[in-house]
C-alpha cells in the first residue's frame, strides 16, 4: 500500500496513532523545545496531508514519517541560520541570540510537570544535549522508539553501518555522562 492508496481519513487515522511518538521524535530533533517541535510536526502534517511528501514504500509508514519530521526540522534549522546570517549582515542582531546548535534544556519544565516527575528525565535530557546530533538521533530511535538500528538508519537517512557506529559511540558517551552526573 502506498500513500496514494490511502484515503484522507485513513492517512489521518495513521497519523493520530503515531502522534505521541512523532511528537517525541520532533522534540528530539528540536533539542527538546516544545514550541519548535510542535511547529515542525505541524509542517510535517501539512506536507503529508497535501501529499507533497511521498511515501515510496521502501520503509514502514512510521519510519517514513520520522524521516519527514527529521528533514523538516533540519530545513527549519537551516532557514533560521540563514535568517540569523542575514540579520548579522544587517547589523541588527547577534546570531547567537537567535540560533544555538542545541537549544538549552527547558529549565522550567520540571516545575511545570511537578514534583512527581522522574528525576532521570532531566538528567538524560541534559546528557543528550552533550552528544552529537547523529548519536542523539540513533539513541532516541532505539531506546525511546524501540526501533532496530536498521530502522533507525532508514529514518536518519544513513547506512546501517554508520548508524551502528553512532549507536555504539553514543551509548558509551551517554553512559559516561550519566555516570559522571550520578550524585555520590
Amino acid at each position: 500500500m502506498s500513500l496514494t492508496d490511502l484515503t484522507d481519513e485513513e492517512l489521518e487515522a495513521r497519523l493520530v496513532a503515531l502522534h505521541a511518538d512523532s511528537f517525541g521524535w520532533a522534540l528530539n530533533c528540536c533539542g527538546h523545545d516544545d514550541a519548535e517541535a510542535e511547529d515542525v510536526l505541524q509542517t510535517t502534517y501539512v506536507k503529508i496531508l497535501s501529499r507533497r511528501a511521498t511515501w515510496a514504500e521502501r520503509s514502514s509508514f512510521r519510519t517514513w514519517v520520522f524521516g519527514v519530521i527529521r528533514f523538516t526540522a533540519l530545513e527549519r534549522g537551516r532557514r533560521e541560520r540563514a535568517l540569523a546570517r542575514r540579520a548579522e549582515r544587517a547589523g541588527r542582531l547577534d546570531p547567537d541570540d537567535l540560533v544555538g546548535t542545541v537549544p538549552a534544556p527547558d529549565e522550567d519544565l520540571d516545575v511545570r510537570i511537578g514534583a512527581a516527575a522522574n528525576p532521570q528525565a532531566p538528567r538524560l535530557r541534559e546528557a543528550l544535549a552533550a552528544v552529537s546530533d547523529r548519536q542523539r538521533e540513533v539513541l532516541h530511535l532505539v531506546f525511546y522508539q524501540d526501533m532496530t538500528v536498521a530502522e533507525a538508519a532508514d529514518a536518519m537517512g544513513v547506512s546501517v553501518g554508520s548508524a551502528r557506529t553512532h549507536y555504539h559511540r553514543g551509548k558509551e558517551r551517554l553512559r559516561a555522562l550519566l555516570a559522571v552526573e550520578e550524585p555520590a
Binding site: G24, I113, A117, N118, Q120, A121, R123, L124, R125, L139, H140, F143, Y144, K171, L174, R175, L178
Partner: peptide
Amino acid sequence: LREAFQALKAE
C-alpha cells in the same frame, strides 16, 4: 539507559 529513556518518554 532504557529505563532513563522510558522515564523521558513518560514525561
